[in-house]
Computed example of a mutant assay.
Amino acid sequence: MAEASLAIGLRTAFVVLGFLATATVIYTVVTDGLPFRKELLTPWMAATLVDFYINILATGMWIIYKESNWISSLVWMVLLICFGSITTCLYVVLQFLRLTPQESQLDPIYFVLLRNKKSPSTEEVESKKSILSVVGARFLFSVLGCLMVATLVYTIATDGSPFRQELLTPWMSATLIDFYVNVIAISVWVAYKEPSWMRSALWIILLICFGSATTCAYVALQLFRLSPQDPVHFVLFNSDSRQVHDGSKRRL
């Protein structure tokens, strides 16, 4: 019963967050015009966009794994790049709506993270989805983390502190809301992965403070806990869920 309530609660939360992100974009376009203006691209806006799109890449890699063909993967990636957290929320809500009653009662987050079932065969999909090995993914997220840290250090050195009122333009505010909606999505995953609320809270605080630098550090650490021979998508699941559901599959 608690698991079913969790599924309903998360689905509702992402519906609300999706509407919030959509309303923010519409309001900002109406009151401040389109964002494609050179004067909006200040050093801190550029740094925020780098931060934003590194998190988008992490979410996008999950979507590519989830989708059963490259056309749907490509469509969702384009939507994710163009609409950010609006797409994230829509995609997450759709995955919760696809859950069967049994999946909602057993382990809803596990089944939301798990690849969609509508695929030609497990082996064929696995071969298509194995874009990166565990070692390759470790390298990618380590490089992205270093890139984000370097971006932050460079922007602070050349443009000063980000905590200045003049930086908080309407589009910067909208971008930050978009960014932190994605942070919430990643935080739900971190809370699912971590064995204790204390560790979850620590990582979520770091996510809020340091954004995608923390995302990359966290993903890289999880990848280093996997064997190089493991499928890279194992990083999505916590150890308890993997043991329970892998055991169930073997019994079947």
Rank of each mutant, 00 (worst) to 15 (best):
A4R: 12
A7I: 08
I8G: 01
G9V: 06
G9R: 13
R11T: 05
A13P: 01
A13V: 06
A13C: 07
V16Y: 03
L17D: 11
L17V: 11
G18R: 12
G18T: 14
A23T: 15
A23V: 15
V25N: 03
Y27I: 13
T28D: 15
V29P: 00
V30C: 03
V30Y: 08
V30T: 11
T31F: 00
L34K: 08
R37Y: 02
K38E: 14
T42G: 02
T42A: 03
P43L: 03
V50C: 07
D51C: 05
F52N: 14
F52K: 10
F52G: 06
Y53N: 12
Y53A: 05
Y53F: 14
I54T: 13
A58K: 07
T59L: 07
T59P: 00
G60R: 09
G60I: 04
M61A: 06
I63Q: 11
I63L: 06
I64W: 11
Y65W: 10
Y65Q: 13
E67D: 11
I71Q: 08
S72T: 14
V75L: 12
V78I: 15
V78T: 13
I81C: 02
C82M: 14
C82I: 12
G84R: 11
G84H: 05
G84Y: 02
S85V: 05
S85C: 06
I86S: 02
I86A: 02
T87G: 03
T88V: 14
Y91D: 12
V92Y: 01
V93T: 12
V93G: 05
L94A: 11
Q95C: 04
F96M: 06
L97C: 09
L99H: 04
T100G: 01
P101K: 07
E103N: 03
P108H: 10
Y110W: 13
Y110K: 10
R115G: 12
K118V: 14
P120V: 12
P120C: 04
E124C: 00
V125H: 08
K128V: 07
K128T: 07
S130N: 13
S133Q: 08
V135I: 04
L140M: 13
G145Y: 01
M148H: 07
V149H: 00
V149A: 12
L152G: 02
L152T: 11
V153K: 02
Y154V: 14
I156F: 04
A157Y: 05
A157P: 00
G160M: 08
S161G: 02
L168V: 13
L168Y: 15
P170M: 10
W171I: 11
S173L: 12
T175D: 02
T175P: 00
I177L: 10
V181T: 10
N182C: 04
N182H: 07
V183C: 09
V188D: 04
W189M: 11
V190Y: 09
K193D: 07
E194C: 04
E194F: 00
S196V: 05
W197N: 09
W203N: 13
I204W: 06
I204R: 09
I205D: 10
I205T: 15
I208D: 09
F210K: 11
A213M: 14
T215K: 07
C216N: 13
A217W: 13
Y218M: 04
V219T: 14
Q222N: 09
L223P: 02
R225C: 05
L226W: 02
S227T: 07
V232L: 03
V232K: 03
H233M: 02
F234R: 15
V235N: 05
V235P: 01
F237G: 06
N238M: 06
D240V: 07
H245C: 03
K249R: 15
R251K: 14
